[in-house]
Design a protein around this nucleic acid. Structure first.
Lengths: 122, 122
DNA sequence: CATGAGTGCTTCGAAAGTAGAAGCACGTAG
DNA sequence: CTACGTGCTTCTACTTTCGAAGCACTCATG
């Protein structure tokens, strides 16, 4: 669908528009890219289990619709975060670095769950 | 809109459904929450500049629509990540920890931009 | 060759989410 | 009272996502 020359309906990338960002800083492109639904989850699952098939990855992501999954994989591929290997889909070296940063969110989420449990249903 | 008893249209929280997650692990709730549009950006901006007004934050986020901003702030408030102070909106202690993890994404994004520049327009 | 099973991925109508302008209720200042 | 700024809400139009179905392909088996 979207081609390289189309800035309005393409993958958020460092150079590009980023949903109206004035600055155009790389982090804005990244936050926009990661803000698409299922994107974070896909990276997460690929970090946990590399090399799944399309349908296998789809199952891991709680049955995300194939249309969205294909779209996300295209975005992440264009961004150099994911690529297809002979075995299946996998994170690139860059993607693995990114996933490492996301791992920290896992620790935070665990503490988060503990604190939410304390506040809720007393 | 959504009330505490409604599990289907509410903020992704550690205990809750998480868009169909089977496991219900905290990280899944977090990845779902952060996958809502503008959520990552809002946390980022609050980390950079604490205490903005509603409209000030709206401007910082490239004019995100007020309806979505209010919705996100409610979600983040419910999740204990953001709260209102006398000065304005700010991250909670938990939210600041989360933002610290996000800071690492900034570094990654910078390297990302460099590598994308090398690959593109050869 | 045919059949079946697996693959990646596309298409399409419906549902959900988001955009963006307008406006309300409140407070404070002039 | 008027004028401004505040935090939102409401409404409609547009975009994204869902979810089922199906296509084109490969490979193994009969």
């Amino acid at each position: 669908m979207a081609r390289d020359s189309d800035d309005r309906s393409a993958t958020p990338l460092p150079g590009r528009r980023v949903r109206g960002s004035a600055t155009g800083r790389p982090i804005m492109a990244l936050l926009d890219l990661l803000g698409h639904r299922w994107t974070l989850r896909i990276i997460w699952e690929l970090a946990q289990t590399p090399g799944p098939t399309f349908r296998g990855l789809q199952q891991r992501c709680d049955g995300v619709s194939s249309s969205v999954l294909a779209q996300r994989l295209a975005e992440l591929g264009e961004a150099g975060i994911v690529h297809r290997t002979e075995r299946g889909y996998a994170l690139t070296a860059d993607g693995q670095d990114l996933a490492t940063d996301l791992t920290r969110l896992d620790h935070w989420a665990d503490r988060w769950a503990t604190r939410m449990r304390q506040r809720a249903v007393p």
